[in-house]
Design a protein around this nucleic acid. Sequence first.
DNA 1: TTTAAATGTAAAGTTTACTTTACGTTAATT
DNA 2: AATTAACGTAAAGTAAACTTTACATTTAAA
Lengths: 78, 78
Amino acid sequence: MIVNKLKDLREKKMKQSVKSEDWTQEGLAKRLGVTRQTIISMEKGTYNPSLVLAFKIAHEFRVTIEDIFEYRDDKIES
Amino acid sequence: MIVNKLKDLREKKMKQSVKSEDWTQEGLAKRLGVTRQTIISMEKGTYNPSLVLAFKIAHEFRVTIEDIFEYRDDKIES
DNA sequence: TTTAAATGTAAAGTTTACTTTACGTTAATT
DNA sequence: AATTAACGTAAAGTAAACTTTACATTTAAA
């Protein structure tokens, strides 16, 4: 499974951005070329972005994919 | 668009692996939990892996996603 | 306290990643 | 030269990412 820090990062950006740059779900969605629904579903963890979208997101936040997304093995360890 | 070094990296591994560890398309596919078709299509660039699969691949090669996959902007710059 | 902006939810449709099957080609080994 | 392992192709089906639409809830500001 994949866990992500999308919501936290975006909300942080919203607070920090002095000039009220657009870090709303809608603003981010537009810059990424996806719909707001896509942002919502990713923040909720309902589904994972494609690799292309993951790259775009990382670029928007100016970090690496690994900074936002983390892969966790699901294998049972009894 | 996304370009990847999958084929090069895998072939390099095949040559380097002294003990003939399984770096064939089939061997890699099995360890990744996908089919050989998936490996072929990715090496050809027919389609991009999901983020989950990209993570698994990076883990197999013991590198980061960015070491294997590169995102290139498609926007026209005339 | 009303209005509007931002967020959330749900469901049906499209696109793309990925599977399955089956067969053809190349390269290495005997 | 014949066999086999590895690679390549094609096509139809399934699963998951992503869109579209529409409406409901929360939050902030007038």
